[in-house]
Simulated scan of single mutants.
Amino acid sequence: MDSFIYSINATIPVFIVMVLGMFLKKTGMLTDEFIDSGNKFNFKVTLPCLLLRDMANTDFNIGKDLYFIILCAAVTFVSIIGVWFLARIFIKNKSLVGAFTQVSYRSSAAVMGVAFMQNIYGASKTAPLMILGAVPIYNIMAVIILTVEGNKDSEGRLIDGNSDFKFKDIVLRSLINIAKNPILLSILAGSLISVSGIHFPHILTKAVSSVANMATPLAVVILGASFSLNATLENIKPVIWAVTTKLVILTIIFLPIAVFLGYRNEELVTFVIMLSSPATPSCYIMAKNMGNNGELTASVVVLTTLISSVTLTFFIYLVRVLGLV
Rank of each mutant, 00 (worst) to 15 (best):
215 A>R: 01
10 A>M: 06
22 M>S: 09
289 N>C: 12
121 Y>A: 10
322 L>N: 10
72 C>D: 03
25 K>A: 00
194 S>L: 13
135 V>Y: 02
187 I>N: 02
13 P>Q: 08
114 V>H: 01
190 G>Y: 04
73 A>T: 13
125 K>F: 10
305 T>V: 08
257 I>D: 08
47 L>N: 07
293 N>P: 06
220 V>K: 00
208 V>F: 10
301 V>W: 00
58 T>H: 12
193 I>G: 05
249 I>R: 02
90 F>Q: 04
201 P>A: 07
137 I>R: 01
256 P>S: 09
235 N>Y: 04
265 N>L: 10
59 D>A: 12
96 L>F: 09
301 V>E: 01
48 P>S: 09
97 V>W: 03
31 T>D: 08
250 L>F: 10
236 I>G: 03
213 N>S: 15
79 S>F: 00
76 T>F: 03
61 N>Q: 14
99 A>D: 05
63 G>M: 07
304 T>Y: 02
303 L>G: 05
70 I>S: 02
64 K>Q: 15
210 S>I: 03
215 A>S: 15
18 M>H: 05
203 I>S: 13
205 T>G: 06
85 F>W: 06
47 L>H: 05
65 D>Y: 13
10 A>V: 15
117 M>P: 08
62 I>G: 07
191 S>K: 06
90 F>C: 09
167 F>D: 07
225 A>T: 00
224 G>T: 01
276 S>H: 01
284 Y>T: 10
108 S>W: 01
162 N>C: 06
22 M>H: 06
146 L>H: 02
149 E>Q: 13
102 Q>H: 06
56 A>Y: 13
287 A>D: 10
325 V>W: 11
203 I>N: 07
207 A>P: 03
174 S>K: 07
11 T>G: 02
46 T>L: 06
137 I>L: 14
59 D>R: 12
15 F>Y: 06
